[in-house]
């Protein structure tokens, strides 16, 4: 991504949604599921809790999770939509691969370890780079300020400020405090996602 461009603001609520080439998109329709499918990409630094969150969303056991070397996909059904959530490993060595998973993304979830103050800057940079990627232009962004169960966790407002979220004007965004481990706050985030989907599909 040599020269980084500043994209002019696109009107809110109408994110661009690139779609696969002609033939394959026709094929997609033959799958026979009446639900409309959406693609959600779940990113963030290693140890932010992405896979735990993914499993939480899919109502699965969250006690035995190991660092993700590759990626995981799970489907979550919400308001008549099938949300295919892609959780891609966050280790530094894997991050260059993130870009390959951004195409046709309808919504981005970014997870932050709220107790890992030392890496706030690093995670902010990664997020800033992501949002500059062409594939994610105008794509709604949900930031989960995770690990609120830890006493050292920074509050969501503080994190939002650190990330300069208020400067993101080319997309809808939301920050949500949560604990993927206990599940607290996760549903609130999902409700925001649903509202985004409903808005968009109207």
């Amino acid at each position: 991504m040599g020269d980084v461009q500043k994209h002019p603001s696109t009107p809110q609520g109408s994110p661009s949604t690139p779609h696969p080439q002609g033939l394959l998109s026709v094929i997609q329709k033959l799958k026979g599921s009446p639900e409309q499918e959406l693609r959600i990409v779940l990113l963030g630094l290693d140890n932010a809790g992405k896979t735990t969150l993914l499993k939480r969303l899919a109502s699965e056991e969250v006690s035995t999770i190991t660092p993700t070397q590759g990626f995981n996909i799970k489907s979550v059904h919400s308001h008549g939509f099938k949300l295919n959530v892609w959780d891609i490993g966050g280790q530094r060595s894997i991050r260059p691969y993130w870009r390959k998973y951004l195409g046709s993304t309808d919504l981005l979830i970014y997870v932050i370890d709220s107790a890992d103050q030392k890496r706030f800057e690093e995670t902010g940079q990664e997020l800033a780079e992501l949002t500059e990627d062409e594939s994610l232009m105008g794509v709604p962004l949900l930031v989960f300020a995770n690990k609120q169960d830890l006493v050292t966790a920074a509050p969501a407002a503080e994190i939002a400020e650190g990330l300069s979220l208020h400067t993101y004007r080319d997309r809808e965004w939301q920050i949500q405090a949560c604990s993927a481990l206990s599940g607290e706050g996760v549903q609130d985030g999902m409700n925001w996602i649903s509202s985004q989907i409903m808005n968009r599909k109207k």
């Binding site: 696969p20 080439q21 033939l23 394959l24 993700t68 070397q69 590759g70 990626f71 995981n72 996909i73 490993g89 894997i94 691969y97 390959k100 998973y101």
Partner: peptide, 20 residues
């Protein structure tokens, strides 16, 4: 394994191209 390897994605893209 439940977790997918990054290399699957490349192969998947090749497959998409082949089918197309």
């Amino acid at each position: 394994e439940e977790e997918s390897k990054l290399s699957y994605t490349e192969i998947y893209k090749e497959y998409q191209a082949l089918v197309e």
